[in-house]
Simulated scan of single mutants.
Amino acid sequence: MRGRTPDRLCAEAVELAREAAREAAFPGRIGDHLGAVADGDRVVTHYFECLEPGYRGWRWAATVARASRARVVTVDETVLLPGPDALLAPEWVPWSERLRPGDLGPGDLLPTEADDPRLEPGYTGGGDPSPHAAVVESAWEEAGAEGPAEAEDADVVTSEPGELPGAPARGSIAAVAEEIGMGRPRVLSRQGLHDAADRWEEEFGPRTPMAQAAPASCMSCGFLVPMAGSLRQAFGVCANEFSPADGRVVSLAFGCGGHSEAAVMPRTPRPPAPVIDETRVDELPLDTGADASDGGEADASDDGADGPES
């Protein structure tokens, strides 16, 4: 398919297009004329090189046109457009797709979609909200009460029970679920459980280098804390402070060198109790009387030699 032939008068209006581009750009930021493209009958766009720092490959586009049977060319618009080799920003990605594990910081709020496939209703029946949901709390505020207890008192004293907007009945599904510990509006779905299991097994699973070199698996380790629910069949929590998985969810097939039964250190032997031999008598040398008298005379002579002369 042959391209449209540019109108001669519009194609020759290069200086008119350049002047229009200069008015839109900073002084000295318009480069050479790169060409002209016909956009329609008597409509031509002139492209000029952009010398603006940070806009490598961009082009100033000035569109000119003329009326039928007229010889005066006028400017339609001027705009800065990226060229084939332009430096562009990455394609915009929604925040829900940009978010990565670890991005959530203190004070950040991460909303979940109403139809999040990882979650499912914690209880069903009548569409009653949880007693502590935002909808019900707003109903208490409208009724002038701070909670269900004050709302019940207000019913008895000032108004009829039906006048409380949105107040859950005492025997409703939401109230019963709250009493038996099922007050969470949503819980993990089967897909949410599978996604969590895949993540945990990838980081602390049997195929990791640590598990391949381990002497035994976590299933027989005394530092493993069992989990509740269906996940306890495949996962637990490590409680060994010297293990790289301390405080983390690990697969039962995972293992490390900190296994409780891998290398049990022998106990330090205690020294035996002292033994007293009462069947033998030790002979001790005793001084005789002669030795004692000789010793006394020697002491007396020594005292006389040292004493003062009379």
Score class of each variant (00 low, 15 high):
Gln233Ala: 15
Ala197Phe: 07
Gly205Thr: 08
Ala213Gly: 04
Glu202Ser: 13
Glu283Gln: 14
Cys238Glu: 04
Glu241Trp: 11
Gly289Asp: 14
Met227Arg: 12
Ser230Cys: 06
Gly205Ser: 08
Pro272Asn: 04
Asp299Met: 14
Asp291Gly: 09
Pro269Gly: 02
Asp299Glu: 14
Phe204Lys: 03
Phe204Trp: 15
Glu283Asn: 12
Asp299Gln: 14
Val237Asn: 03
Arg280Val: 09
Met265Thr: 14
Val237Arg: 13
Gly295Val: 07
Glu202Arg: 14
Ala253Ser: 12
Ala228Val: 05
Glu261Ala: 11
Arg199Leu: 15
Gly296Asp: 09
Cys238Phe: 08
Ala245Lys: 02
Glu201Ile: 13
Gly205Tyr: 04
Ala228Lys: 07
Ile276Ser: 09
Glu283Ala: 15
Asp282Tyr: 03
Ser251Gln: 01
Val225Pro: 00
Pro206Gln: 06
Pro274Tyr: 07
Ser293Val: 14
Asp198Ala: 15
Leu224Asp: 00
Ser260Thr: 09
Pro271Ala: 00
Gly192His: 02
Leu231His: 03
Val275Gln: 11
Gly258Tyr: 12
Val225Cys: 06
Ser243Val: 01
Gln233Thr: 14
Pro285Gly: 08
Gly229Ala: 04
Ala298Gly: 12
Pro272His: 02
Val250Pro: 00
Pro215Ala: 12
Phe242Met: 10
Arg280Leu: 03
Phe204Val: 06
Ala273Phe: 03
Gly229Lys: 00
Pro269Ile: 07
Pro215Arg: 11
Ala292Gly: 11
Ala245Ile: 11
Ala228Met: 01
Glu283Asp: 15
Glu297Lys: 11
Phe235Ser: 01
Pro274Arg: 15
Pro206Thr: 03
Gly236Phe: 10
Gly205Glu: 01
Val249Gly: 01
Ala214Ile: 02
Gly295Arg: 15
Arg248Lys: 15
Glu241Ser: 13
Asp282Met: 11
Asp198Lys: 12
Ser293Tyr: 09
Asp198Met: 12
Asp198Leu: 13
His194Trp: 10
Ala213Met: 06
Glu297Ala: 13
Ser217Asn: 04
His259Arg: 00
Arg267Tyr: 05
Glu202Tyr: 15
Asp246Cys: 10
Gly222Ile: 06
Ala298Asp: 02
Gly229Ser: 06
Gly258Asn: 09
Ala228Pro: 00
Leu286Ala: 10
Cys256Phe: 06
Pro274Ala: 15
Val249Pro: 00
Ala245Tyr: 05
Pro272Ser: 11
Ala214Cys: 05
Gly236Pro: 04
Gly257Ala: 05
Asp277Pro: 11
Cys238Asn: 05
Gly247Ala: 01
Thr288His: 06
Asp291Arg: 10
Ala197Tyr: 03
Pro271Val: 01
Glu203Tyr: 09
Ala213Trp: 01
Val281Asp: 13
Asp291Val: 12
Asp195Pro: 00
Asp287Arg: 15
Ala196Cys: 09
Ala228Ser: 08
Pro274Ser: 10
Ala263Val: 12
Ala262Arg: 02
Asp299Ile: 07
Pro274Gln: 07
Gln212Thr: 02
Arg267Lys: 14
Ala262Asp: 01
Ala273Ser: 11
Arg232Gly: 08
Gly247Lys: 00
Glu201Ser: 15
Val275Pro: 00
Val281Trp: 08
Pro206Tyr: 05
Ala228Gln: 08
Arg232Thr: 13
Ala196Phe: 12
Pro266His: 01
Ser260His: 05
Ala216His: 05
